[in-house]
Design a protein around this nucleic acid. Structure first.
Lengths: 117, 117
DNA sequence: TTCTTTTGTAACAATGTTGTAACCTGTTTC
DNA sequence: GAAACAGGTTACAACATTGTTACAAAAGAA
């Protein structure tokens, strides 16, 4: 059987799996875990420029990621009519529920990074 | 997270940051979390074809991911001189230490996937 | 002899993703 | 009038990643 065929077989009629996959694809996008992590570290709403500075990426990518997070209901965006503009991002309850996992994952990452110095 | 760790985090020097980033880039590659998860679910060594079937991806991608995991010391590869070839992959102790985080992360993913049906 | 199996690798075209540079809004300051 | 600020958007070229196809090796079965 060809690779294409077995893939079609395996993924047929499995809508639940596709939702899981969607989330994993979302979480696997570049800087996504970093964004969630820096937002988790500080419970206060965070401004665009602050997030951008902390994850160290281009505006384009940060804006794309925040848009995707908002579309998935993981952050809320609040714009204030100040001059210049002020926009704050907050994690939703759903995203906050991910906090313990992220924290222990980052703990592991930091430990490994330490020991490989 | 411990105080020592968050201090390390806060005052992280560039070289440590790059190690952290390397790991995050690794974990963010496509199918990476899935591979770690399916291997975590079953403590026994797992064969290439079994991993491929469970994560539902092409041999090329699965081989690439397993190679990257091996290069980072997260899996060990054992080849047996059978015919046809038999190759088993096992998570290293380091990777097993990531198990609790991955488990609770997947729990969260499954809950969200469920509630969005 | 040829087919079958597992576990890959190599080349390559198609597709996806990224950063950069330019631009925009709207008000206040020079 | 022009610059400056935050928070983006758009277009696009450069770059990265993916799956597909073809191939290999080794030995037993048909």
């Amino acid at each position: 059987m060809s690779q294409a065929q077995s893939q079609r077989m395996a993924s047929m009629c499995d809508s639940a799996r596709s939702h899981v996959d969607d989330l994993l694809v979302l979480l696997s996008k570049s800087k996504m875990l970093s964004i969630l992590y820096v937002m988790n570290c500080d419970p206060d709403p965070m401004r665009f420029s602050e997030i951008k500075k902390r994850v160290d990426s281009s505006s384009t990518t940060v804006a794309r990621r925040l848009g995707e997070l908002e579309a998935h209901g993981l952050v809320t965006r609040t714009a204030y009519a100040t001059v210049p503009a002020t926009v704050e991002y907050t994690l939703t309850r759903d995203a906050i529920a991910l906090q313990p996992s992220l924290e222990s994952m980052f703990e592991w990452v930091l430990n490994r990074a330490d020991s490989s110095l």
